[in-house]
Structures are given as structure tokens and as C-alpha cells.
Design a protein around this nucleic acid. Structure first.
Lengths: 197, 197
DNA sequence: ACCTGAACACCGTTCAAGT
DNA sequence: ACCTGAACACCGTTCAAGT
């Protein structure tokens, strides 16, 4: 049977997950698929385009319940939804090495391809961010998410290599704190959200 | 005369500034210095170590007046100092392609080598961030700075390539807004700083 | 101490030619 | 339509050997 683009992307995600971006070469990918390198270029324009698809698939598994598009909710609920979605994005990326780098590349090359991230901007507007600022707020939040993911992964790699460089833990707790700080700065201090009150 | 490490780093900064990270290869660097590739490895352990030095030099030019270590100032002044230093870091990186990537690499590999960034953390503490949170706040701010630099550079590159993808401007204004949002979230809303009042 | 020459094991991309 | 074979122009790193 003929190779498909989905197969190519899927195998790329596999290599990335198991070995990291340094090992995700077109040649390695071809070897894994039992084809010659040139074959890949029939299914994909170049490596960058492939990585955009990889990023989209990494974020594609985010639960529909977390995205929950629908009737515009009240600001308090939207703010909670932003927090949930931010956590979901982080959770999807943390287990995949170098995923932050790949997502950043995709976000610059084809932002529309990453639905959960455009959804983040929509939710921010629903939560009360003026449209003129929502793209800025989205970037602020995304930089925090990706930076947090990268920091945690680098830390794990350095520890594995025996390079114990102390430093504070930058895990889930720091992440949640950062989201709170950003939303407090953007939306004002948190008020007890009147959940369906 | 024998090659020096300073020469190697200086030439690397030059290539990065003029052509970007993709063109900064050990072989290209050797060519520019009129030596064989192997010669570089007497002065530098490997490429990563070289890039740490490159990052340090990029930030090394930041004015001492902006860093201004000295007697612990009052919180309001320290907050203003954070804002100035953040702007100075951004200004140092913006003209150098891919500098955000290089600084991020250096920050993970050898954070102590980037003095302006450790100074940022100190200033945040002076401004009132509890020590237990200062490293988190430093990261939050740094992710914003680097993300902002990268976004602006990518935008310039895409425009140069004719890929007009609209999107909002993420320049100085968005940057300043982000710094304000973060500091507001971390320190509370800005109060009219009593400058030497 | 400092550098050359040469090798090792890789890259991404292209493209005529095959089926 | 889909893939092979082979080339082009590169990489980072190592290391015996030279001076």
C-alpha cells in the first residue's frame, strides 16, 4: 500500500516523542518507514511543513470538553475555561521532548493550524480582554506555557545527564502561579467566580 | 598571532548578527577566521559552549547604568529598574537574528553566565517579590522578553519573504504592555511611584 | 601550545528515471 | 501517482600528526 501523509506525520510524532527533535531527521524518518528519503518529499513540501503538522497533531488530542465552543459564557466561566485550556495544552506537550520548540515554529509559520491556541484567544475575549489586546494576551500566555514546558523538560534532561544545577522547581505549581499572575494582570485580581450562582 | 577564544566568539557574534543562526556553523566560522575547523575545538569545547559565550556577549553590552547595582533602593524605584532592564535586554536582542533562541539555550545551560538576567531576579526581589517566587517571576518575565523578540524577528523575516500574514504588531508597545501586565500581576497594580518624593 | 589534514557519521533537498 | 537511486552541498566532532 502507498505511503500516506498521515503515516509520515504519525511516525514523525513517534520519533519526536521517543527520541527528541535532534533525532527527527528526514532520513531517520524515511528509514523508519522503509522508504527512500526522496519519497517523503512527495507527501510533504519540506521539513518545516511537516513540523507544523506534527505540532497540530500534538495539540489535536486536547479534549473537546476543554475546548467547549458554544454559547458565549459569562466572564467568570470563560476565565476558568482559559485556565483549564492552558493546563490541557501544557499537559499535552510536557511528555513530548522539544515539543515547545516545534509548537513555536508552527505558531509562527501557520498560527491558524493550531486550533487550541486560537481558541485560547477567543476565550480570553469572552473573559473580558478587549479585542485590541487579545492577541497580545494570547502571546503572553502562550510564551508562559511554552517556556514552562521547555524549562521542565530541560531540567529533566540535565538531571538525567547528571548535571545537577539546583535551581527552583519549575513544574506544575510554578506554571499555575504564572497563569494566575498573567490573568490577574490582564483581567484584574481574581474574584470568587459566581459559578452558576 | 595565535587565535584567541575572544576572536572566535566575536566572529561568531558577527555571523549571527549578519546572517542568523542557520549560517553560524563551526565550518563557516572557521572559514571566516582562516583556520581549519579542528582549530576551533582547541579554543572551545563544542558549539553549545560557544553559543553560551555568544549569548553572554550579546547581553554584555547592556549599560552599567541600567544594571546599577548598589544600595537597595525602595520598591517603587526597583520596579522602575526592572522595567528599564527588561527594555534594555529586549533592545540588545532585537537587532540580532535568532538571539532569543541563543539566549534561551544559554539560560538553560549556564544561567549564571548571563548577569543581566540574574540581576533581573535581584531587582524583582527588591521590588517586593518574595524570594520563594523571584525565580518564577524572573522566568515569567524572561519568557515574555524572549517571546516578544522572537515574534518581532519572525514577523520581519516573513514580511521580507513576502508572506504577509497580517496579524497584530507585536512590537515595543505590546512588549511594554506585557511587562506591565506581569508586574501588575506579581506586585499589584501600579501606584504612582514616589520618585525620591 | 596551537593548528592541519583527513576522516567519521551524519544532514535537507532535488530530480531524472523507473513502475 | 508514487517511489528509487544518486547526487549536491552541506553539517559537528575527533584525532593523529605536524610545528
Amino acid at each position: 500500500m502507498a505511503l500516506t501523509r498521515e503515516q509520515v506525520v504519525g511516525t514523525a510524532v513517534g520519533i519526536l516523542s521517543d527520541f527528541g527533535l535532534a533525532d527527527l531527521s528526514m532520513r531517520r524518518l524515511a528509514r523508519e518507514l522503509d522508504v527512500q528519503v526522496g519519497a517523503l518529499y512527495w507527501h510533504v513540501k519540506n521539513k518545516q511543513e511537516l513540523l507544523v503538522d506534527v505540532a497540530a497533531r500534538l495539540l489535536g488530542g486536547i479534549d473537546a470538553g476543554v475546548m467547549h465552543p458554544g454559547a458565549p459564557a459569562d466572564p467568570g466561566a470563560a476565565r476558568a475555561a482559559v485556565e483549564r485550556l492552558a493546563r490541557a495544552v501544557r499537559a499535552a506537550l510536557v511528555p513530548v521532548p522539544d515539543s515547545a520548540e516545534v509548537v513555536q515554529l508552527a505558531q509562527t509559520m501557520q498560527p491558524a493550524a493550531l486550533r487550541p491556541l486560537t481558541r485560547l484567544r477567543d476565550l480570553l475575549e469572552e473573559a473580558g480582554v478587549p479585542p485590541a489586546r487579545s492577541a497580545w494576551a494570547q502571546h503572553l500566555l502562550l510564551n508562559h506555557i511554552l517556556g514552562s514546558v521547555a524549562a521542565q523538560q530541560d531540567r529533566a534532561v540535565l538531571e538525567e545527564a547528571g548535571t545537577e544545577r539546583g535551581g527552583p522547581d519549575l513544574g506544575e505549581e510554578a506554571f499555575a502561579w504564572g497563569v494566575d499572575v498573567i490573568l490577574a494582570g490582564v483581567l484584574g485580581v481574581r474574584e470568587p467566580s459566581p459559578r452558576t450562582a
